[in-house]
Design a protein around this nucleic acid. Sequence first.
DNA 1: CCAGAAACTTTGAACGATCCAATCCTGCCG
DNA 2: CGGCAGGATTGGATCGTTCAAAGTTTCTGG
Lengths: 329, 329
Amino acid sequence: MAEKVTIATVARHAQVSRQTVSNVLNAPHIVREETRRRVQEAIAALGYRANQAARQMRTGRSRLLAVRIEPTRDGINGSVLDRFLHGLTETADAAGYRVLLYTARDDDHEIATYDDLLGAYDLDAFVLTGTKHGDPRTAWLAEREVPFVTFGRPWDAPEAHPWVDVDGAAGTAQATRRLLDTGHRRIAFLGWPAGSGVGDDRRAGWRTTLAAAGLDGAALDRETEDGITNGEREMRDLLAHDGPPTAVVCASDSLALGALQAVRDAATPVAVIGFDDTPVAAAVGLTSLSQPLAVAAARCVELLTDLLDGQPTDPHVLLTPTLVLRHTA
Amino acid sequence: MAEKVTIATVARHAQVSRQTVSNVLNAPHIVREETRRRVQEAIAALGYRANQAARQMRTGRSRLLAVRIEPTRDGINGSVLDRFLHGLTETADAAGYRVLLYTARDDDHEIATYDDLLGAYDLDAFVLTGTKHGDPRTAWLAEREVPFVTFGRPWDAPEAHPWVDVDGAAGTAQATRRLLDTGHRRIAFLGWPAGSGVGDDRRAGWRTTLAAAGLDGAALDRETEDGITNGEREMRDLLAHDGPPTAVVCASDSLALGALQAVRDAATPVAVIGFDDTPVAAAVGLTSLSQPLAVAAARCVELLTDLLDGQPTDPHVLLTPTLVLRHTA
DNA sequence: CCAGAAACTTTGAACGATCCAATCCTGCCG
DNA sequence: CGGCAGGATTGGATCGTTCAAAGTTTCTGG
């Protein structure tokens, strides 16, 4: 078995000192052209790779990003995280970072995990998904000046910390406009109870677009917890009342799927639009709003690397979802 | 800002030497009870955490596992990986390991990534998902004696290396038996082209169960690439021929969903059973076979830690899927 | 031809943990 | 009471890298 290749091996092979090799790696411009080439040839020839542990011990930086992987809740929206993670890993790779996973039952455990990861692994930064009002996690991290980015806006204070998000209101507005353009006038909204930033945002897009068209949807606005059965129940209820809607915009694909089942045995066809463009939507032909997850992930990594390199950038990125047209609208 | 807490800080605080602290952590039994307690109190009081980088440099072990995250293909089966990852992270955590993600376009890139991860991060082990016939990745790893486990059997040589898998044949057998029990006699199978280990396995379960009941399904066996539209086409074709099936077992939820759409406008009801119990199945009420992913992940970690600790265990684990009954069968 | 500066290169120390070998106790036995 | 065995504790060396400072060569201009 070949002995380990260290910076000293490379140095000997290239007839220079350790430090020169280190300079070639970390500050190439201060090394003479010809020397640099010789060192790089030695590196390639020996298959040398800088030992991260040793580097980390000296510099205190690990080139590691941590991301939480949550248990898929109702399952339907799970693959959103999946695609985000993939994008994150790919972009991080390109920037010379690696992605470490962690889980946590609740906020307290999550904070304990931060402490653990920072203490034991010297993590460089965190990516959080799904922030909520008054999030204790962001407060903890900010207090300790740990670099982090959230995928999801801080709804309390938009300037509080770096974030990347998808413009839900723009999405539902786009969906509503599409329905208006195709002749619909009685357009309902199936969303979550008021109070969640994401949910309120998505509802707002629908309401303002209706208002801009001189319509008032107040009677066609429903609030319910996420889930297929909830969606179906509310939609049946909407259809049972006077002046039933001819179309519905939903805050999630789960709700939309429920609506779709309620609509199946309706007298006249009803258009349905979901949110998240999950595999289920693709499977059943549901028109839905697709989040640019790969782009979002890439921007998260970009924000973090800039932050870690001390480069100032605008730390707030808002992306627009795309309406994917299928059979249902 | 508080100064960094190292093993020396703890030693000073507990009035012992560095080595004693190290012993408390790595070989508690050789330290006197009372001393051990004193050291542990100091550790707790100071919030000390062993620096992984330093430990790794000396021991050559990183307590890091690597898992590949693949781009979700047709999307429907994506969440399978998602749930597996979550289970993996949770179990690894409990065993004192962390999970590192990586991606790779193809096998060559993946092998290059192994090299990179081993060289730079001293990775302890790899978890591979989805092995295929004559996999170059497992060969590479085995040759270098890198510990790894695959989620999925090596179909060429079952004893080649440690693996965890779900018994597909047992699953489809269970599904077929269920259909037989509820009176069905003409039970079709919608699977993938022969040649893939997983696909052949799932088909075998159906065939042998039919044979055991004295039935021959040869005429009701279809092979097609995965996907909803493929499933729908094949199912329509089956229904159009003489002696159409009254039930169908599918190799995936994608195929089952296609079958479901074909069946919708059939004269008589046809039972459909899918495989993987994806969120889509739950959403549309499709009866499907559920893989015990959390258990599989846990067993993977178990196998690896045993391997790393030099403990001999039976390195081949075959788990049985569960039939989740819903509306369609 | 030499002083002085510029441009690199070399050397030694440090990061924080573990391993190794040596020393210090403590209790026990002769 | 001395000696000894055995476990508990200690100090020094070490892993591979980067930082800091000192050393060397090369080049330029007077």
